[in-house]
Write a protein that binds this DNA or RNA. Structure first.
Lengths: 203, 203, 203, 203
DNA sequence: TATGAATGAGGATTCATTCAT
DNA sequence: CATGAATGAATCCTCATTCAT
């Protein structure tokens, strides 16, 4: 029988991940030291290594938890919405909301992850999977809209989905680093107008 | 009269920058060593330091030359085209062409730069300036189109420009890291269709 | 009255020592970790520290039990044999038998101990005492043989004893590490022939 | 053209090896730190790593230079001596002389090497090769003696050689760690007497 | 008494930068 | 000017030992 409560371990892991994230956001992965992370999680280095075998594993776990689950979360939050267009609209609203209200740090972490993706196959893989998850889900919404007659049958669902995800991540790069003059609200509006004009020509 | 022609010096600098870029593309900035760069430019470390005072300066110069000039280059390549729509179309074609034909490595370098932007203000600044240069130029094209009656006056030029740049960079992230299943050609097509539908409602 | 019988405690100690030995044989003393030893003895580290105050103590105890008692054991096994020559022969036979049948691991442990002897005075001391014990006993056999007229009075008992012990340990080094081409049987034979020729010139 | 004299590098390597040896003799290989070695060779750690890629390589090179060459050296020193017996005698004299006059530290280094041999295959291999080199050379001397009629044809050359090498190394263990009461001179004498009695029964 | 989580000093190795030649 | 050897602080990770539960 363990001396600590069974989820003590998970709590510690989470504390380390939180600490790691905030350190990574500040200096990126390479410049963040294990000591930094240990200090910020109020643990000794040694203790930290009981929960993660290498620094890299911290990054990978963070990647999985913070970014890898995005598609599933998005799906869970929107799958019950009736109608393809309302669902699409909701997806975009959720993205914008997350970017500057709910999880503003996730954007910065995405940048950190991309920085690592250059030389770390697993990170790259993780980002690619997130991409295909998101594109797949958005495309499925659009296809559903086409089939139900809500959207024009001429619309190329996977391509539009890819464009939306691309735009979302591109915008995230700039927004998360404080690029001046960005108007997220206006971008959301224009995006919706363009999509509506394109997808629902009968309107 | 200097021993070496200033031209020679510039050539050396360029050789170092080329070497540095290719090293950065392989391992990112942090993991690339000055020795790596020196070796690939067939120079001694000592010699390298005669051209760049620090490793960071190499990155910064590279950033300026490879990414910072993009807006000016785009402008130079398209300013003589008559009509806002043809110019916009050309801009998008140039982007796509660059991405997989002319400068495929630039996309990867963009990622490296973003990775550094997290902790290096100057790099971040450089990327933001490139952004505002691109957005400014695209917005000016659209505005010109509105003024000339080519585009609908309801179009929000800076926002559309920002969306296009965002999408371009987002797509670059994935394309440059070999995300499977991306169809650049189809994305260009769909983007143009959406823009045309949105900007030229009279068609 | 103690909670556990003293016998139980001794059994635990022995289990730890056995585990420790097998770990030491695999990676040497320095590279063996206390966790390794605890794991192999199916004990927690904390429990292990109730039986031995330091890692070093495990080594020292092992040394004493596995190597330090050799002289006494040899004596016990041979003291009842009548005649100096038969006793000498038996000693050599016991050595050879132990080396490749009864305690092949002891040879490897001897090497581990020697490795530690370089920097640990107590270990060195232990090995020296074992040496003088063995040399003393063998010398006493030879001296007895000389006194009884069995051996030539010209024989230098302590020196011959030292040579035998030296040869035994030297051969152990190579045999225990699997040096190819060693013929223990032939060496025993030749050793006995040489000793007989030298000690019993009358034959 | 190199900035340093061509054998500067070799000199540095040798200095490092000397420093490493003396550190290893004091604390063994595992406890010796790279900093220790650097300090004793009056170099920075960084500099040291320009000459040896890992700590282990220092050990391996030392092994090769200090121990691996023994057979060749012994052969070079004795090959011109006429007569098998005088050559054998000389070999033994050289060994004894080396042990307490010429290279007393080599004995201690042999122990360090044995300590590593437990877990390092390359070290073990090196020691085994030294062994087979020495045994091979001594056996060749004895065989030559048999063929020339100098020695009894009944002598088992490889076995006697193995016994001599075993004894030499076993004696080295004790002598090099200062075991009290060892009389090298007497051991040499007795060894020679035993060998003569055994090999030259006609005397 | 037993457990195993926590500590933190210590060790091998790297690398940007300098500077004697 | 060029070279590349030297520096040494900084980094990741380990492990003997302790101690709260």
């Amino acid at each position: 029988m363990p001396k600590v409560s069974p989820n003590h371990k998970e709590q510690r892991k989470q504390a380390i991940l939180d600490a790691a994230q905030s350190v990574f956001l500040g200096k990126g992965y390479q410049l963040a030291t294990v000591d930094d992370i240990a200090a910020r999680s109020h643990l000794s280095v040694g203790a930290l290594y009981r929960y993660f075998p290498t620094k890299s594993d911290i990054m990978l776990t963070l990647l999985e938890r913070k970014l890898g689950r995005t598609p599933q979360i998005l799906e869970r939050l929107t799958r019950d919405i009736a109608g393809a267009w309302p669902r699409l609209v909701r997806c975009i609203e959720i993205f914008v909301h997350a970017l500057h209200v709910r999880h503003p740090s996730t954007g910065r972490f995405l940048i950190v992850a991309w920085g690592e993706a250059i030389q770390d196959n697993t990170v790259r893989q993780g980002l690619h999977e997130r991409y295909s998850g998101l594109v797949g889900y958005l495309a499925s919404i659009i296809e559903q809209g086409i089939m139900s007659g809500e959207f024009s049958p001429a619309a190329d669902a996977p391509v539009i989905a890819a464009m939306l995800v691309g735009m979302a991540d591109g915008v995230t790069l700039y927004w998360s680093t404080g690029t001046p003059g960005m108007d997220l609200r206006a971008m959301r509006l224009t995006t919706l107008q363009m999509l509506r004009t394109y997808l629902k020509p009968s309107d």
